[in-house]
């Protein structure tokens, strides 16, 4: 009984190989799917890309010309959403992890945040319309759109920030507090800097989502067409996701604008990846000295 039969060993080895193959296969399918989508977009979209395409406004009822106002609009909305979502999200996470006494109220707040993450984006759009556009009288504007997107990405940022704050060792907090440094200073000087890479990860996900969503900006910020650039945060803007939606469903000539649609999709994907890359580089830079 002590000796394992050669055939048993062989069977175990076979089993192992089989499971490795399955896991590899799963990873491969995901990579292929992503690669396929991106390749498809590039193949169909690259012909539309030119300097004029990204620097000029649309012409001839959007069947020709560029998409510059939409690019700019998406950048404004994304930056706006992050400027609202990040401070609010990080502040909430600090309260939840560092200050709040863990109890029923906090559990309720957490459930609320998780529910918020599951709310369909069109509901955020309608909320933005009712709350920011109508009640606050912001109108359809960069401000209303940024606020709506900011709330949309809030759960993501809070979740990532909470995890990041919790991952900072308790011993750092103790060391600082034991020196007679106040809790507030300890959080700002020790906890937050060490949690920043993790918080950035949450923001990266948030940025991707904010830049790509159509439904939340449909009623709150996006213009069907405007050739003039926004003069203030109370102006409407064009935005890439909405522009794609418009061209593909309600444009003046859907077939004719196909290349422009693909080109716009390519620009949107490139923009999101570009913003993500910047955040990833910053994060890698900050992680260099992290070692505990």
């Amino acid at each position: 009984m002590h000796q394992i039969q050669a055939s048993t060993m062989k069977w175990r080895y076979l089993q192992q190989s089989l499971f490795f193959a399955l896991i590899r296969g799963a990873a491969l399918i995901i990579t292929l799917a992503l690669g396929g989508i991106i390749l498809y977009i590039i193949i169909h979209g690259i012909s539309a890309i030119s300097w004029d395409f990204i620097t000029k406004p649309p012409t001839h009822s959007m069947t020709q010309g560029g998409i510059m106002p939409a690019i700019l609009g998406t950048i404004y909305l994304t930056v706006g959403a992050i400027s609202i979502g990040l401070p609010l999200g990080v502040a909430s996470a600090i309260y939840l992890t560092e200050y709040a006494r863990q109890g029923r109220v906090i559990r309720l707040i957490r459930v609320g945040i998780n529910c918020l993450a599951g709310v369909p984006s069109v509901v955020f759009g309608l909320f933005g319309l009712a709350f920011f556009v109508i009640i606050f009288k912001f109108g359809s504007s960069i401000l209303a759109g940024s606020l709506t997107l900011g709330f949309l990405i809030l759960p993501t940022i809070i979740g990532a920030s909470e995890e990041a704050l919790k991952s900072v060792p308790k011993t750092f907090r103790e060391a600082s507090l034991a020196l007679g440094v106040s809790k507030w200073q300890t959080i700002f000087r020790i906890v937050l800097p060490n949690a920043l890479p993790g918080i950035l990860t949450g923001s990266i996900l948030g940025i991707g989502r904010a830049a790509g969503e159509t439904a939340p900006i449909m009623f709150t910020a996006a213009a069907f067409f405007t050739s003039k650039l926004p003069g203030s945060v109370f102006d409407e803007v064009m935005a890439l996701p909405y522009h794609i939606y418009v061209l593909a469903t309600a444009g003046t000539n859907i077939e004719e604008t196909r290349p422009i649609q693909y080109g716009t999709v390519l620009v949107l994907v490139a923009l999101v990846l570009g913003i993500n890359m910047i955040a990833i580089i910053i994060r890698a830079y900050m992680r260099r000295n992290k070692r505990w």
Partner: peptide, 19 residues
């Protein structure tokens, strides 16, 4: 308590320098 901790320092079981 912050005042107390300034006058009464502490060294912990595991070395815990800041990064």
């Amino acid at each position: 308590p912050v005042e107390i901790r300034r006058k009464i320092g502490m060294v912990f079981q595991k070395p815990n320098p800041f990064p």
